[in-house]
C-alpha cells in the first residue's frame, strides 16, 4: 500500500496506479482530453497537470502518466495548475475552432476567447492520438496514423485515401474527444481507393 496526499487528504494507493487513477478513485476531478481508459495514456494535451509540492520545491506533472509513490503531495487546484489549464485551453480554442466539446470545456474553466491565431473554422482535430491508439490497441488494425509533421500534422489512412484496412467499426469516432473524427471519417472508411493491403501480424 502506498500513502500519498491529494489536496491535503491522505489517500491510499497501490503500486502501478497513476496519479490520475488514484485521484479519480477518490472522487477528485481532473480534466483530461487526450486520455481514455480504453487505451494507454500519452500525456499529450497537458490538461491533466497537477502540482507536486515538497516544502519550497514544486513541479508540475501530467497526472495521467505519473505513477503514484509514497509521500507525494499532490495538488489539483493551485494557481499554477489553473494557469496551465487556461493556457492549454486557450491554445486549443485557437487550434480547434470547430469543436463544440473544447469550447464547452474551456467555458467551464472560464476561457472563452483566445489571443492566438485561429485555424480554419471547421478544424476540430487536436491531434491527441486517441483515434490512432484505439485502432492499434483495441481494434488491432492500425488503419490510421498521423501524417506529416509540425503544423501540417493530421490524422489519416495511408495516402489519405480509404483502404481495405479499415473495417469501419467507428471506434475512432466514438473515442474522439472533439468531434473531429466524425468530420474526416469518410476519408478513412469507404470503397478502397488503393490496391495496397496490410499484413496482420
Amino acid at each position: 500500500m502506498i500513502t500519498l496526499t491529494i489536496n491535503d487528504q491522505e489517500v491510499k494507493a497501490r503500486k502501478g496506479w497513476t496519479l490520475l487513477e488514484a485521484a479519480r478513485h477518490h472522487g477528485v476531478d481532473i480534466p483530461t482530453l487526450c486520455y481514455h481508459e480504453a487505451v494507454a495514456p500519452s500525456g499529450a494535451c497537458r490538461l491533466c497537470m497537477v502540482e507536486l509540492k515538497d516544502g519550497d520545491w514544486s513541479k508540475l506533472v501530467a497526472s495521467c502518466i505519473y505513477p503514484v509513490a509514497d509521500g507525494l503531495n499532490v495538488y489539483t487546484e493551485t494557481p499554477k495548475v489553473q494557469n496551465v489549464r487556461r493556457w492549454v485551453l486557450e491554445m486549443l480554442l485557437a487550434a480547434c475552432p470547430g469543436s463544440e466539446e473544447i469550447a464547452t470545456l474551456a467555458r467551464r474553466y472560464g476561457v472563452t476567447t483566445t489571443r492566438f491565431a485561429t485555424k480554419s473554422a471547421n478544424e476540430a482535430c487536436m491531434v491527441c492520438g486517441l483515434c490512432v491508439r484505439v485502432c492499434e490497441e483495441v481494434v488491432g488494425l492500425s488503419a490510421i496514423a498521423t501524417v506529416d509533421r509540425g503544423v501540417h500534422k493530421r490524422v489519416g489512412a495511408p495516402y489519405l485515401k480509404p483502404t481495405d484496412v479499415c473495417v469501419a467499426c467507428g471506434s475512432c469516432v466514438t473515442i474522439c474527444p472533439t468531434g473531429a473524427m466524425a468530420k474526416i471519417f469518410d476519408t478513412v472508411r469507404g470503397e478502397p481507393q488503393t490496391k495496397l493491403t496490410q499484413l496482420q501480424a
Binding site: A145, T146, R149, P158, Y159, T163, V165, Q198, A201
Partner: peptide, 26 residues
C-alpha cells in the same frame, strides 16, 4: 506505394505507420 507496401510487409510495420514515418521526414 508498391515499395511502401513491400517495406511494410518485410519489416512487419503496419502500412499506415510506414506511411506516417515516410511523411514525417521531409
Amino acid at each position: 506505394p508498391e515499395s511502401m507496401q513491400l517495406v511494410s510487409e518485410h519489416t512487419g510495420v503496419p502500412l499506415t505507420q510506414a506511411y506516417s514515418v515516410a511523411t514525417f521526414y521531409q
